[in-house]
């Protein structure tokens, strides 16, 4: 079912000071069955937003709707949503089986149904051999799967995931990412996934919502955001290495459509002679699959990424060029996008 946020505002009380606003009127529509990733730097309010949807925080203003039903004033348990916590929050005294069954028992489901549901989920997530163990006897990846199992066993209308992979090592994280995506597609349930990792955001989401200082900066499909960022911030936040944002002074006057422009590193062409902009090579980073060249221009730093390894050395001066269709214009170096 769909999840809708209407004008959600939230501030935290501060000791002997004015409350600190964290969310300034968030509007977001998540259609049924969609996986949306909420991404933003730390302090942007993404976890608070998720907790507001779960009902763990009370809203100051605005409303939360799940499947069209206003749940703003419902307790977390009445919202028919499940959540996977960053700390996973498994009950340390309960076995894997009892952890998974906890929510069903709390809702007084008949024991026979609980047993069937737990067995089903355990099969799906390959947890069957672990059912008798305590969380302290599991590996990080196993615990993570138990947390997922606990969320899906109730068959909720929506899932909330709060950086669920942040405690896994990188290799495991990639695998778990694929598992979560597959699982969500198979179940066909709405999911809201919070992360600060833009790779997770790009790969997991049907859509991405970029949050900044408690406001939604842009919502859209991953590649749409990558190709047409609504602001310099989004351009810089999505993609590694990030989009370079420079003052338009660098460009020849006839090409300047706004005060600043951005260019993706892979769109920067390192030419030898007939380029548009003069730049000095500062650092060269060999990633293996590609090479990132840090360049200094008269008006800021510029990154270039090339598949080849044969690149100019630090200290050399090179001419670089970019095609008009690859340039994105912004009101300022930290401003909204300008469509020419």
């Amino acid at each position: 079912m769909s999840v809708s946020l209407r004008g959600v505002e939230k501030a935290f009380a501060a000791r002997s000071a004015a409350p600190i606003p964290v969310l300034h009127g968030i509007d977001l529509e998540v259609p049924d069955g969609e996986m949306i990733v909420i991404v933003g730097p730390s302090g942007s309010g993404k976890t608070t937003l998720l907790r507001c949807i779960a009902g763990l925080e009370e809203l100051d203003r605005g409303s939360v709707l799940v499947g069209g039903r206003d749940v703003t004033h419902d307790d977390p348990g009445e919202r028919d949503i499940a959540m996977v916590f960053q700390e996973l929050a498994l009950y340390p005294h309960l076995t894997v089986r009892a952890n998974i069954a906890f929510g069903l028992k709390a809702r007084k489901s008949p024991p026979a149904e609980v047993a069937v549901a737990v067995a089903d989920v355990a099969r799906t997530l390959e947890l069957e051999p672990l059912l008798g163990r305590l969380p302290s006897e599991l590996s990080g990846g196993e615990r993570q799967r138990v947390a997922l199992a606990r969320a899906i066993v109730r068959d909720p209308t929506a899932f909330l995931l709060d950086e669920p992979l942040s405690n896994l090592d990188p290799a495991l994280r990639t695998r778990a990412r694929v598992e979560i995506r597959t699982l969500q597609r198979d179940l066909g349930r709405t999911a809201i996934y919070v992360t600060h990792d833009q790779v997770e955001a790009m790969t997991l989401g049907d859509r991405i919502a970029v949050l900044r200082n408690g406001r939604v900066e842009q919502v859209g499909a991953p590649l749409e955001l990558y190709d047409h960022p609504a602001s310099a911030f989004v351009g810089r936040f999505l993609g590694t290495p990030p989009m370079s944002i420079l003052s338009s002074e660098v460009l020849t006057p006839d090409r300047r459509k706004a005060a600043a422009f951005g260019i993706r590193p892979e769109r920067v062409r390192l030419a030898d002679a007939d380029g548009d902009v003069k730049a000095t090579v500062e650092v060269v980073e060999h990633i293996g699959s590609s090479t990132v060249v840090h360049l200094r221009t008269s008006h800021g730093e510029l990154l270039a990424r090339t598949p080849g390894r044969d690149v100019p050395q630090p200290g050399e001066t090179v001419m670089v060029s970019f095609a008009d269709r690859d340039i994105r214009f912004f009101e300022s170096e930290d401003g909204r996008a300008v469509t020419p």
Binding site: G55, D75, G77, M83, F85, Q86, L90, G103, A106
Partner: peptide, 21 residues
């Protein structure tokens, strides 16, 4: 840990259930 109480709240556990379990 506070997070397990939040997990219990989302799981729909009543205060009494949370206390005893």
């Amino acid at each position: 840990p506070g997070s397990i109480y939040e997990a219990a709240a989302v799981d729909g556990a009543s205060p009494l259930f949370t206390l005893t379990r």
